[in-house]
């Protein structure tokens, strides 16, 4: 399957998601948005059922795929740093970008735990954190009211922040 088979706006959707994601990544991130889109594209478009996907399903898959790509890349970076020397502690002098890579792995772990207990809430968090979707978009994608999305996100955010705190120590 070539990328030509997709309507151009699907590509735009992917790029928008990638852009929102990359914005929060470290400035010298080795993955450029185009590369991230391409990788996610190849993975989603390579699915046997790719052409029959609905918009909602496509966005969900794209976000999940980009999450995987980013997590893999964060994992490699953290591993490389560990190899470089163990004196690297997480203190105030740690560059924000390094904290971010580590936090990304912690969120990913916490999200996996959450998915086992509440798959719907985990999907919401994935769209919010890894897709940077707004409340209204998420409401439309998941078929919830914006109020419900806000309430559930408030809970999930507190829960995740606590997980990150307790794991990060």
């Amino acid at each position: 399957m070539t990328t030509q088979a997709w309507p151009p706006l699907v590509h735009a959707e992917l790029r928008a998601v990638a852009r929102r994601l990359m914005r929060r990544e470290r400035p010298d991130h080795t993955l450029q948005p185009t590369a991230l889109v391409h990788e996610a594209w190849m993975r989603v478009a390579g699915r046997p059922d790719a052409r029959g996907l609905s918009h909602t399903r496509f966005v969900a898959l794209a976000v999940a795929t980009m999450r995987r790509v980013l997590v893999d890349s964060a994992r490699r970076r953290c591993a490389a740093r560990r190899d470089a020397g163990r004196r690297m502690d997480l203190d105030d002098s740690t560059p924000a970008a390094d904290r971010c890579s580590r936090e990304l792995l912690l969120v990913d772990d916490a999200l996996r735990t959450l998915a086992e207990a509440d798959a719907d809430l985990a999907r919401l968090v994935e769209l919010r954190v890894f897709g940077r979707h707004g409340v209204d978009e998420i409401a439309a994608l998941l078929g919830m009211s914006p109020r419900t999305v806000k309430r559930r996100w408030a809970f999930a955010r507190s829960w995740l922040a606590r997980e990150i705190r307790s794991q990060g120590r």
Partner: peptide, 16 residues
């Protein structure tokens, strides 16, 4: 504990 915690803003959870 969840309700009491005033978390610092997180770039990952809240955008940067």
């Amino acid at each position: 504990e969840l309700l009491a915690s005033a978390d610092p803003p997180s770039p990952l959870l809240d955008g940067d």
